[in-house]
Amino acid sequence: MTTAALATDADSDAAAPGSVSLSGLTKSFGDFTAVRDLDLHVAPGEFLSMLGPSGSGKTTVLRIIAGFEEATSGTVRLSGVDVTRTPPHARDVNTVFQDYALFPHMTIAENVGYGLRVKGTSRSERVEQVAESLRRVRLDHVADRLPHQLSGGQRQRIALARALILRPQVLLLDEPLGALDKQLREQMQIELKQIQREVGITFVFVTHDQEEALTLSDRVAVFNNGRIEQVGTAREVYEEPQTEFVARFLGLSNLIGAELAQELTGTRRTMSIRPERVRMLGASDALADGDVGLTGTIAEIVYTGPATRYLITSDAGVDIIAERPNAHHIAGLDVPRRGDRVRAAWNPAHAARLP
């Protein structure tokens, strides 16, 4: 889905199959308000991630869309139909959970076909659809096994196949990769994106993993304290954060206060600059045309594998993180060390201006 398509006025596809529209959504539990007057539109066929820390309200919103929680106020529309008070089984959505929720006594084929059996689908049609669904997740060879005989990644793919076989208009995913180790999780991210593209179903995905959200999503909704701080493409929320929370939550960011920013650029607005946009120069090196910089001392060095991060304590009293790809290094040559005097430089055009 192109950025232009996503930017289309939400009203134009609000009634299209697979759309999700939340308006004025509020959910309170006693004196605690988990979601506050929230508006969100998900386009048909879009992969939207709801990203935020624990307690930010993202899972509550997912449960309200699914019908597992009832909104205190506001409306939920699926494909243009108001389902705010509709029970879960009557909504054309399905949910994939982190704990897989597979029936331990059933074979994989029986697990995947369970929803079709409940719907009364004939055995011959059920067998055909189960085989197709297992092929889609590349696990047709395990049809006769039991869940405990599969790895965590395989069980997660089976849970996905079971949800997709009913062909819901919207698939809700509640941190489905959270229980997997890093390598398997990254592999599953690629597979999940491919499957979503193949089936063309709207995916609404909950995660607290920033990298996961940026990797998978057409758009990301960043949650904080029951509200959405920003909605945009992965590039927009990372490169152009609209609030300090978004700048800090999505990866590392250097925040330059308004007063210092005015000294450097003449504009009195807080700047957010990503570490990979910061270059390290010798303390006496001249700045490139248009660049600004702060001189300081390297206080810490962190090796991350693909890159090395340098924490620079500037003379202005502001800590700056610079990141250099390790591919650019020649072993033993020109390697900065703790205590070195350096200049952190960047182009103000690469910095986001925060309110």
Rank of each mutant, 00 (worst) to 15 (best):
G55V: 08
E132M: 13
V42Q: 05
A213V: 03
I201G: 07
T215Y: 06
P88D: 06
P275R: 02
A349W: 07
K58A: 12
L354K: 11
G152E: 07
P104A: 09
Y114K: 13
D181L: 02
A10F: 06
V335P: 02
K27V: 09
T107N: 09
E70W: 06
L264S: 11
L62M: 03
P275G: 03
A161K: 12
R91L: 07
Q189C: 00
P17A: 09
E211T: 02
A258H: 04
A15D: 02
I298R: 03
T26P: 01
F203E: 01
R341S: 12
G80D: 05
R162H: 13
S124Y: 14
A261D: 01
E175R: 10
S54G: 08
P275F: 04
L51T: 00
F245P: 07
I312A: 13
A101V: 14
T265Q: 10
S21F: 00
R126K: 15
R155K: 15
D209W: 03
V20S: 01
A161Y: 10
G57E: 07
P176M: 03
R77L: 03
V137F: 07
R63L: 10
P336I: 09
S12T: 14
S124D: 15
E70V: 14
D39A: 05
P325F: 09
L264I: 06
G339C: 11
L40R: 03
A331G: 05
I320R: 07
R268K: 13
Y100R: 02
G18V: 02
V292S: 08
D334E: 11
A179R: 12
V292D: 14
R136Q: 15
T95K: 08
Q154P: 01
V112A: 14
H141V: 09
D218Q: 06
D285F: 03
S73K: 11
T75W: 02
E46P: 01
Q183Y: 07
R279I: 13
V302W: 13
H105T: 15
T243H: 10
L38P: 04
A349D: 15
S73R: 14
I158G: 12
G153C: 11
T308R: 10
D99M: 11
Y100S: 05
K58P: 05
A288Q: 13
A345Y: 09
A261V: 02
D13Y: 07
R341E: 13
A288R: 04
A179S: 12
L281K: 10
L6E: 08
E300G: 08
